[in-house]
Design a protein around this nucleic acid. Structure first.
Length: 215
DNA sequence: CACCAGGCAAGTA
DNA sequence: TACTTGCATGGT
């Protein structure tokens, strides 16, 4: 029996899906590339990340071993187009170290871990915050967790689904307490929210052609 | 020219 | 705890 909030969420989801169709997220060749992309796209447009990813691929460094072997300085130069390149080079190095030292350098073993303990471990890596951790869990490891970003916050806030000052966890719980824990649903829903944001989100709400009034 | 993008950590009081 | 600031490129 769905909650009333659950019904509203479904209504929003159905509306978005009918308007935009499937989004085919995450755009990447493999899980490791998803993780790298998740770090590179922090506060950065995906267009810029694509260039950085392309550079890494061309030089054959887009793999756990590749990122382990490259120096931080060389890495920073390759990911330059994605912005914050010194910070992100450090973050990628930090993740790779965690991946080999604490996860056995094995994505399979990693995804076999329990969701929330693994989430806590990811949050312990410098440079991986809640959104990046959840993006990795959902899109790379296919764990049923809802990803919250700035668009999600605006959507929920403007539709009065959460308080104005709601925390990341509160928004995440609002989705997860009212929807089935379904990887495909969480995947598509978040991707649709981002699509909505790209097309309609500017600081001021209320665009006539927006499928969701108010966003 | 200003403003923003699929955040996060560190510093301040 | 609750703000603020640094990080940085590329597109509009």
């Amino acid at each position: 029996m769905p909650t009333s909030t659950g019904k509203k969420l479904r209504e929003i989801y159905d509306n978005l899906y009918a308007s935009f169709g499937p989004q085919h997220w995450w755009p990447a060749d493999d899980s490791f590339e998803v993780i790298v992309g998740a770090i590179l796209t922090q506060n950065t447009s995906w267009k810029n990340v694509e260039k950085a990813i392309r550079n890494l691929k061309e030089r054959k460094f887009l793999s756990p071993q590749g990122l382990k072997s490259i120096t931080e300085t060389e890495l920073a130069a390759l990911i330059r187009p994605s912005g914050y390149y010194n910070q992100k080079a450090k973050k990628l190095k930090g993740f790779v170290k965690f991946f080999f030292n604490d996860c056995g350098g094995d994505l399979k073993a990693m995804s076999a871990e329990e969701l929330y303990p693994l989430r806590e471990r990811l949050l312990g890596v410098k440079g991986i915050g809640p959104e990046t951790a959840d993006s990795i869990l959902l899109y790379a490891l296919e764990k049923p967790i809802f990803v919250v970003d700035t668009y999600t916050y605006r959507l929920c806030s403007r539709h009065n689904l959460v308080a104005e000052d709601a925390s990341y966890e509160q928004i995440q719980n609002m989705f997860m307490d009212n929807l089935p824990a379904d990887v495909q649903l969480f995947n598509e829903f978040h991707a649709l929210i981002v699509r909505l944001g790209h097309l309609y989100c500017r600081r001021t709400p209320g665009c006539d052609t927006c499928p969701l009034k108010g966003f």
